[in-house]
Design a protein around this nucleic acid. Structure first.
Lengths: 356, 356
DNA sequence: AACGAAATGAGGTACGTTCCTCAAAAACGC
DNA sequence: GCGTTTTTGAGGAACGTACCTCATTTCGTT
C-alpha cells in the first residue's frame, strides 16, 4: 500500500493539518516541523496522488489555442492534432478550445486575446506573427496571471512563458546538410523558396541553411530566396522562370507551405526524382510526394507530440509547476521515404473509452 | 461547470445507480434505459473524470520492466529513461519496478517471470531474446491475465500483447538510403557490423539495409556482415583486418552496440570525417562522436518516448482500454550533427514538485 | 509568570466516481 | 392476477487530498 498523508502525519508525529500545511506550502509552520514532515515523507517514500489532489482542488483548466484561419494543410493538421489531444485530456479536467483569427488582422486578434480572461481561460497557446499590437495584448494577459505559450513560431523578446516548437535555425541547418550531402557537395545550384522573408521562422531557416551550405558545401551555389507570398500561382511563375534560366539547378529547398504547386510543377517538368527536393512539414500532400519520389526529404515536427506538449506546458504553467524539459523538447525529425511513419488511421477516434 | 453523473441521472430521469451501471457496463439494465442514459450523456457532453474514477477504484498499477543485465550504454540509458518515467508516473498510482536477468540464462528469466503474479504485478514489459523457455513463460503470464509487452526487440509469433519499439527493418532501410545518398551512389565498399547474426533486430536491420542498397545503389559494394559478439577487442581485430585488405571502404554501417571500439579505431586510423559512419542509438558516446564528426548519422529511437509509451501501453492493457496508436508509434529518428537535440540536463531531476 | 503571537490539533466538508446492499417497482410468463 | 424474475431506486461508504474553522498548546518576550 502506498503511504498517504495520514501515514506521514503518524510517522512525523504531527497532525494531518500540519502535514497539509507543509505539503501545500501554507504559512504558519515552524522550520523544525517542516523538516520533520519532509523527513517522514522521504522515509516513507510518499508521492502525492495528483489525481486525488486535483479532484479535491476542484480545479479545471480552460485553455485557448489560437491559430490563424489559414486553410493550409499544415494549420489544418495542427488543429486536428490539438482537438484530438484536447479530447483525450478532457478526462483530466482540461477544457481546450480552439479559436481562429483573420491572418492579416492583428487588431481582431488583440481583441480576441483581451476577451479571454473574462471567459474563464487560465492559459493561452498562440500561433501568430509578431506585431506591436500583439505584444501589448500578450503583456496584458500575462500581467493578469494567464500564461501565454508560443506555438510553432516563437515570439521573441521573451514575450511569452514558453515556446512549443522546433528550433527553426537548426531545422534550416539540417536541411542544409541533407541537401549538401545528397548532392555530393556539388557542383550545382540550389533554389530556395519561402512565402515571405518577413516571417521569423522563414528567416531562421534560411539563416541555418546558409550557414551550413557556406561552411561545408562551397561547391554548391545557393541562389537568392524566391518569395511565393503563399500563392500557388506566384510560385509556379517564379520557379518556372528560374528553372528555365538556370539549367544547373539540382536541388530545391522549400522553406514554407504551398508544396502542392511545387510538386505539380516538378512533375510537369519531368524532374521528379532527378532533382533533390527538401521541404518542411509532413502534410498529407507532402507525404504522397515523398512516396512517389518527387520530394526527397522532409524536415518536420510531430504534430501529435506538439499538441500534447502544448497541453502539458499550459497545465504546468497554470499550476506553477516545473516542466520536464526533456519531454517538452520538440525534435527536428527527418523523414525519408524509408522511415515514413505508417499513416495514422483517421477512423480511430472513438467517442468514449467504452470497451469493456 | 462540467456535468457529473448526477446531472446525467437527472437529465435521463433515472437514478444514480442506474447511470453507474450503464457507465461501467454492469448487467441488469434494460436496453431502452441504456439508450436513454447514453443520450443524456451525449446531450450534456459528459466526460468521465478519470482521476476521480481511479481514485474511487482504489486501483494501483504495479508493473515490472525486465531488462538484460548488460552494461551497455544503451541498456543503461533505457533503464534511466524507464526509472525517470516511472517516478513521474508514481503520482498517478503507478508503481514501476525494474528487474534484470543474466543475459545468457533464459531459465532464470523464466523463473523471474513466473514469480511476478504472486507479487502483485499487473503488467510486464520485457526486453529479451526469444527462446522456447521464454515463450512458455510469457504464455503462462498472459493466461493469468497479465499483459506482456515486448520492448525494443519484438517477440514474434504474436506472443505478446504489444511491441514498443521501432520497425527494425525500416530502420535498416533508412540507414541504407542515407549511406547510399551520402556516398553519392558509389563507387566504393561498405562495411557492415553487428554483434551477432542471431539476434532478431540485427537480422531485420541487415535485411532492410540490403534491400535498399541492392535496389537503389548498385554502384556500392556491401561486404558481408562482420560479427563482433559484443566484444570490443573482436571488433577491433576484425575491422582493422578488413580495412587493411579493402582500401575502397568508404562507409561503415554499425548495426549494433559497441561503438566505443569502433570510433576509437577510426580515429586511430585517421579516418574520422573521411569515411561515412552510420550507427544506431544515440548514447552519450555516440553523441560526442557525432559532434566530432567521427560518426556521420545515427538512427535512433527516443528513449524517453519509449519509456512513457511503455507505461501508457501497460496501463491501457491492464485496464483493457484501447490504445492511441498514433501516440504509441515509436519513430525512427535520424540524427545528424545539425539536428542533435540539446543535451538533457541530468541535474534536473527534482525530488518533489514543490515549487510554490 | 504572564502576555500576546505563533504554531498546532481536531474535526469537518467537499471533489466525482465506484461499488455495495436492500428494498421497491416494473415487466414477464402463464 | 398471480408469482417470479428483472430492473430500478435510495442511500451510504470509500478513495486521497484540499481547505476551512475553532480550540488548544507552545513559544518568545518582557
Amino acid at each position: 500500500m502506498r503511504p498517504t498523508v495520514i501515514d506521514i502525519a503518524r510517522e512525523a508525529g504531527v497532525s494531518l493539518a500540519t502535514v497539509d500545511r507543509v505539503l501545500n506550502a501554507r504559512p504558519g509552520v515552524r522550520e523544525k516541523t517542516i523538516l520533520a514532515v519532509n523527513e517522514a515523507i522521504t522515509r516513507l517514500g510518499y508521492v502525492r496522488d495528483l489525481a486525488a489532489a486535483n479532484l479535491a482542488r476542484g480545479r479545471t483548466y480552460r485553455f485557448a489555442v489560437i491559430l490563424p484561419d489559414s486553410e493550409s494543410q499544415f494549420i489544418q493538421s495542427l488543429a486536428d492534432a490539438l482537438i484530438e489531444a484536447g479530447s483525450v485530456a478532457a478526462t483530466s479536467r482540461i477544457d481546450l478550445r480552439l479559436h481562429r483569427f483573420p491572418a492579416e488582422d492583428p487588431h481582431s486578434l488583440a481583441a480576441l486575446l483581451a476577451s479571454l480572461p473574462d471567459n474563464g481561460y487560465v492559459g493561452v497557446a498562440l500561433m501568430a506573427p509578431e506585431t506591436p499590437v500583439l505584444r501589448d495584448a500578450v503583456r496584458l494577459l500575462r500581467s493578469k496571471g494567464i500564461p501565454v505559450v508560443a506555438l510553432v513560431s516563437n515570439l521573441p523578446n521573451a514575450a511569452c512563458d514558453h515556446f512549443v516548437g522546433v528550433d527553426n535555425r537548426a531545422a534550416g541547418r539540417t536541411a542544409g546538410v541533407l541537401m549538401g550531402r545528397f548532392l555530393g557537395g556539388g557542383p550545382g545550384q540550389v533554389l530556395v523558396l519561402g512565402q515571405s522573408l518577413l516571417a521569423r521562422d522563414m528567416v531562421d531557416r534560411r539563416r541555418g541553411f546558409d550557414e551550413v551550405m557556406l561552411r561545408d558545401f562551397p561547391g554548391l551555389d545557393v541562389l537568392p530566396s524566391l518569395e511565393t507570398h503563399g500563392s500557388g500561382r506566384t510560385l509556379r511563375d517564379v520557379v518556372a522562370r528560374r528553372l528555365a534560366n538556370s539549367p544547373d539547378v539540382r536541388g530545391i529547398y522549400a522553406m514554407g507551405d504551398g508544396h502542392r504547386a511545387l510538386t505539380q510543377l516538378i512533375d510537369d517538368h519531368g524532374l521528379s526524382g532527378c532533382i533533390t527536393v527538401i521541404c518542411h512539414e509532413l502534410t498529407p500532400h507532402v507525404r504522397s510526394a515523398l512516396e512517389q519520389g518527387t520530394v526527397t526529404a522532409v524536415i518536420t515536427q510531430n504534430l501529435g507530440h506538439l499538441a500534447r506538449s502544448t497541453l502539458r506546458v499550459l497545465r504546468a504553467k497554470a499550476d506553477n509547476l516545473p516542466l520536464d524539459e526533456g519531454q517538452e523538447q520538440i525534435r527536428i525529425e527527418i523523414v525519408l521515404r524509408e522511415n515514413l511513419p505508417a499513416q495514422p488511421d483517421p477512423a480511430q477516434i472513438l467517442p468514449e473509452e467504452k470497451v469493456a
